[in-house]
Each structure stands twice: as C-alpha cells, then as structure tokens.
Design a protein around this nucleic acid. Structure first.
Lengths: 199, 199
DNA sequence: CATGAACTAACGGACGTTCGTTATCATGTG
DNA sequence: CACATGATAACGAACGTCCGTTAGTTCATG
C-alpha cells in the first residue's frame, strides 16, 4: 500500500503497526502490550516515544489521515463541468475508501466515540478543506440545494455501502459484485446524476 | 419512548439500563459493575439473570431492536403510489432514528465491531424483513436499478446525516436546522424523488 | 421449608504505567 | 587513534487498579 521508508524510525514503525490495530479494535480494544508485541519491543519501550496511550492514539490518527484530506479536496476542485467533476470525485472517493479500510474505520469510530476535542481536531485539520471543496461542487451541481447537506449526502451514499458490507452478506438479494468499488461508484454516480440533472 | 410495564422484572430493568450504556460506550466500555450500579444492585447479582456479559449484551441488543424491525417494514409496505410510499418511509425512518439514538448507535457499533455470528443474527432476525420491504419499494420506484443497492442508498442517505452530526458542528456552512429530523427528511425526499422520477 | 434472588468477599488476570538498569552509538577530547 | 561522555532507546520487573466471574451466605416469599 505505502512504500516503507528504508530508514524508518521506531516511532514510525509503531504508528504503522498501531493504525490497523486501532482501526479494527478501537482505543480500548488495543492494549499497549499488543502494540508492543506487534512492533517487536517491550511495552515499556513505547513510553520512550509517546508520553501515554492517548498521545499514541492521536499520533496514529494523524498518521492515518495524513494526505487523505489533500487527495479528496484535489479531486473535488479539479476543473471541468460540474457533472464531470462529480463523476471524478465519486470515482476517486470510492477508490480511496476501498483501498484504505483503516481510514474509513478510524473515521467511523471517531464519529461514534470521539470526544469533543478529538472531533474538533479531526474536523478542522482533516475535513474542513475537503468538505469545503465538496460543498462548492454541490453548489455548482444544484444551486437551490443546501450545499452542506448535499455534500453530506454525496459522501454518505458512497460510505454507507462500505459500512454495511459486513451485514449485507446475510441479507437477501446480495451479489458479490455489489461490494466492488466500481459498481458502487457507478450506482452512486447514476443516482446523483439523475437527481441533480438541470431541470 | 416505550411504556414501562408496571410489573417489570429485574431482568427487564437490567436490560433497560444496559441498552443506553452499551449504545454510548460499547461492549468493552461498559463494565458489569457499571451496569449493576446503574440498576442499583451488586455486580454479582447480574449473574442470577444472565450467565455472562456476552449473554447480557445479546439480550440488550434484542431488547433494543425489538419491534423496530416491524415498524420499519410496515411503513415501507404500506399501500399507495411508489412516490407516496417513499415519502412515508423516509419520514418514518428519519423520525425513528431521531427519537431512538440508542438503536442507531448500537447498529453502527455492530457494523464496526460485530463478529460474524452477531451480524448474522442481527441480519436475519432484525433486518431481513424490513430490508426486503425497502428493496421491494426500491424496485417499484426504479425497476432498472439494482433494488439491493438502491435500498442501501435510501437508508444511508438518512443515516449518514445523523452519523456525522457530531463532527458537522465543526465544519463550515453548518446551521442548527440541518440536524432537525424534518429538514433531513425533506432533503432526502427531494433528492430521491428527483433521482427516481419516471423518465 | 424450599427456592430464587439479593448480598459480601474474594480470586486471577489484564491493563496502563513507572522504575532502575543496560546496551548502542555518535561525538568531542587527550 | 584511543577513549571517555552523553543521549537515546531498549529491557525486565513491578505497582496499583479495574475487570469478569465465582463462592458462600442471608433473606423474603410461596
């Protein structure tokens, strides 16, 4: 997924290992001992790099979210007609969520459990800029619609298909292709294009 | 919300207290001692009613999800034109999520952390029927569209606005009215009506 | 008197964290 | 070049706390 730097510091290796652990089990579900074991050091050694578990978690979040924000907003701000920008955004956003499940899971975990400070931090440092870009795109697509709400709807349409994948397996009418990123993207693009077509 | 039975057993009182605790802090975030304290009994007494914590959690889930399934599927299956049924479903579904945040949080927690057994249980005993109803409505609305994916999209459009509420507070363009159930319902209905209008 | 549900007390284990020590290694000095 | 120095990061061991759970006991109710 990401090219491991040849001269990676221990601190980076800890974060690299901690991100998927936190993404899959949450803050309370991952012990310092588990992280240390995964890195291959003793638990006490973690405290040479981070003052406490909370700091390690925040650094892991920042590590996981790095450059994601820029990637999203760039695709939304790219030139072209609103429809073309919409399609490019949906394609890219879907691919991003498919290729980095840790990012999506960390995000949804924060939405459930994040305290006010963490949520403000994530909102301002990660989502403010790309969300502004999506909102601007939304306004170009349908000037009469609240751009804030339309932006949320656009992102939610994509995300919810990933979010529900583990339970959709057990529901009727499920076909494996419905989990494929390209199928999801096509479905969302079709829905949004028709909803937002100039009248 | 729900009428408390006058002759409620201790078992019911435990579940009643455990549901919001589990909904807000998750399985690992709620100790047996915390539940016992909230009920007003000793931790050991919980084991007179449930063999272990896992069983208590499963019963709490069943308790929280009871009758929700029936409520959802009834609104989706009600008679009328597809458009009218869509509007009624969105209205009712939105109201349901707004008035019972515990249900929504428990659901999203399961989507994140539920193991295969729990997810299958939830899918088959809670969502199979209402999801079928929504899918049927989706097929009536747009026979050319995959009803499974359209049903997911319809639910996701509503849910994502609630899910992101805690972080939207810190994003630009936010106005308080965007958290109101009726505004969310109107937004979603408008979007879906236009997307699914007969060509 | 039998039964079920409450109590008090405690067990064993996992957890976050701290402590004192050791090993590695780049750097400055004779 | 040889060697002391200081910083960094690893280690093993332990502390205090909280957890899920169990055991044994009391007590009210039928």
């Amino acid at each position: 997924m990401s090219i491991p730097a040849p001269s990676s510091t221990t601190k980076d290796r800890i974060l690299e290992v901690a991100v998927p652990l936190f993404a899959s089990a949450g803050f309370d579900g991952v012990s310092m001992r588990a992280i240390a074991t995964a890195v291959g050091i003793q638990p006490a050694s973690l405290y040479n790099h981070f003052p406490d578990k909370q700091a390690l978690y925040l650094n892991a979040m920042a590590y996981a979210f790095a450059d994601k924000a820029r990637g999203i907003s760039e695709t939304a701000r790219a030139p072209g007609s609103p429809e073309a920008r919409l399609h490019r955004f949906i394609d890219r956003f879907t691919a991003l969520m498919a290729e980095d499940p840790d990012f999506r899971r960390l995000l949804q975990r924060e939405l459930l459990d994040g305290d006010e400070n963490r949520l403000r931090l994530v909102a301002q440092q990660v989502f403010r800029e790309p969300f502004g870009a999506i909102s601007a795109l939304a306004q170009d697509l349908d000037p009469e619609c609240d751009p804030h709400m339309l932006a949320i709807s656009m992102a939610g349409l994509v995300l919810f298909h990933f979010e529900t994948a583990p339970v959709r397996r057990f529901l009727p009418g499920m076909r494996v292709e419905q989990d494929s990123p390209s199928v999801i993207a096509e479905h969302v693009k079709r829905l949004l294009s028709r909803a937002l077509a100039r009248v």
